[in-house]
Amino acid sequence: MTQDTVAQRNRDLVVHGLAEFARGNIGVLRELLHEDFVEHSPGNPSGRDAFIEFIASAPVAGARLDIKRVITDDDYAVVHYHMVEPGGGRGSAVIDIWRLVDGRITEHWDVVQPVPEPASIPHGMF
């Protein structure tokens, strides 16, 4: 398999997974996450089952996720998106980084930043 093919497969997996998750299909995570999934975000549990239980009740589970950009290679997928929780105002800018091995997400990092008043970001967040 060429690098471009692996990168495209990784892109397709995370974009599909994020879209399904945003539709309320939490079960898609069982297909995507490796059993020994490692979470690097403070306060979030590692392990597929523990993470799914945690994320199912987290605010992101009911949020609107508007993907702005996706960058992938043979090992990683990076997604930059606008997350707006129900009644969440301007929302947050989120960058998720996923490491994939053989079509399964094995690790996750993220950065989340509240979207400030438009006047304080003249070039926009996205």
Rank of each mutant, 00 (worst) to 15 (best):
M1S: 07
Q3G: 14
Q3E: 15
D4S: 14
D4L: 13
V6M: 13
A7E: 03
N10Y: 02
D12Q: 02
V14A: 06
V14E: 09
G17A: 10
L18S: 09
A19V: 13
E20M: 13
R23D: 14
G24S: 08
G24V: 02
G27T: 03
G27F: 00
V28W: 07
L29I: 05
E31I: 13
L32Y: 00
H34V: 03
E35A: 14
E35S: 13
E39Q: 15
H40D: 05
N44G: 03
N44P: 05
S46K: 06
G47L: 11
R48I: 12
F51P: 00
I52L: 11
E53I: 06
S57H: 12
V60S: 08
A61G: 10
A61S: 15
A61D: 11
A63R: 00
R64V: 10
I67H: 12
K68D: 03
I71D: 00
Y76D: 10
Y76M: 14
Y76W: 09
V78M: 15
V78A: 13
V79D: 04
V79N: 11
V79H: 08
G88V: 04
G88C: 01
A93Y: 10
A93P: 06
D96T: 12
D96W: 05
D96G: 05
V101L: 12
V101E: 15
D102G: 09
R104S: 12
E107W: 03
E107C: 02
H108R: 13
W109P: 00
D110L: 08
D110T: 07
D110N: 03
V112R: 03
V112C: 01
Q113W: 08
P114K: 02
P116M: 05
P116G: 05
S120V: 10
I121M: 14
I121R: 11
P122E: 08
M125I: 08
F126W: 14
F126Q: 11
